[in-house]
């Protein structure tokens, strides 16, 4: 019974969107059981200018590049912190944790200034820079905890065998951290995919919009009519990649979420 309630609470709103997205606009204001079905909403989204998949692609590009960049920057930092004394690392970590919880929307004005000064606006790859900065705290906390979980003898053994720092990372430490890296990557990717205020202010060209600002633009496009069929189709299309991601990687996402919060 409780379980049913939980499922209904979680899935109900999404199912309603799915249902709406296949209904002709005229039928939406009538009896919910009559009025037939249609694919027109999806058609118009995919034939729009730019087509809807473009936003998904943009989000994917930004998400992937930001995730990669974050890992590249965070791994050495986490390694360094994990090799510091516990006391020093702890005080650094408190600050990192504060940054991780920071409502980053408050940063948009300063970051927008950066974009203007350095001409980084309307550039998907440049958007990875603020995203990397914003994802770093979580990545550092997760990876650092994972570094600390590896017994120091393993690295010492590798050192004695003549492995340099890079070789130790590449062959011994990072393979052992694969689960943590997967968790961190997924969370970073989710964050970048969903991020709104920075994308909203850095991107203005319609064909470069990521999903979140595109969604807001769709929502704002028609205030007086009720094009909810189109809206619903957009929410469905915008949700599918994430739903797939959650279904596939539920375990890693959950472990990343809880680890990040607990160790930080």
């Amino acid at each position: 019974m409780n379980r049913l309630l939980l499922i209904l609470w979680s899935l109900g709103p999404m199912l309603w969107q799915l249902y709406t997205s296949f209904r002709p606009n005229a039928a939406l204001t009538g009896n919910p059981l009559q009025g037939g079905w249609t694919l027109e909403h999806y058609q118009s989204l995919l034939e729009g200018n730019p087509p809807f998949w473009r936003y998904l692609l943009n989000s994917g590009v930004v998400g992937l590049s930001s995730t990669l960049l974050t890992l590249v920057v965070a791994v050495p930092c986490a390694y360094g912190l994990s090799r510091l004394g516990r006391k020093t690392a702890r005080s650094v970590n408190v600050l990192v944790a504060v940054a991780a919880a920071f409502p980053y929307v408050l940063l948009f004005l300063a970051l927008l200034q950066v974009a203007r000064d350095l001409h980084l606006g309307n550039n998907l790859l440049a958007l990875s820079l603020p995203y990397t900065g914003l994802s770093l705290p979580l990545a550092i906390l997760l990876l650092q905890a994972s570094f600390r979980d590896i017994p120091p003898e393993l690295e010492e053994a590798a050192r004695l065998e003549g492995l340099g720092l890079w070789q130790r990372l590449r062959w011994v430490l990072l393979p052992l951290m694969a689960p943590a890296i997967a968790s961190a990557s997924l969370l970073i990717f989710l964050f970048c995919w969903n991020e709104y205020p920075i994308a909203l202010t850095w991107l203005s060209r319609a064909d470069l919009l990521t999903l979140a600002p595109a969604m807001a633009r769709i929502a704002g496009s028609s205030v007086f009519t009720v094009p909810y069929g189109g809206f619903a189709a957009a929410t469905v299309l915008g949700s599918i990649p994430l739903i797939l991601l959650v279904l596939l990687f539920q375990r890693q996402i959950v472990s990343g979420l809880t680890q990040g919060a607990i160790k930080g």
Binding site: L6, I7, S10, L11, P13, M14, W16, Q17, L190, W193, N194, Y196, L211, A212, P213, M215, A216, I218, A219, F231, A232, A234, T235, G238, S239, L242, I243, L245, V246, L247, Q250, I253, V254
Partner: peptide
């Protein structure tokens, strides 16, 4: 657990429109 995680994963703008 997976099902209850879904709402969290969606972009806020997507779910707000919903």
């Amino acid at each position: 657990r997976t099902v209850s995680l879904l709402p969290w994963a969606l972009p806020t703008t997507v779910m707000a429109l919903g």
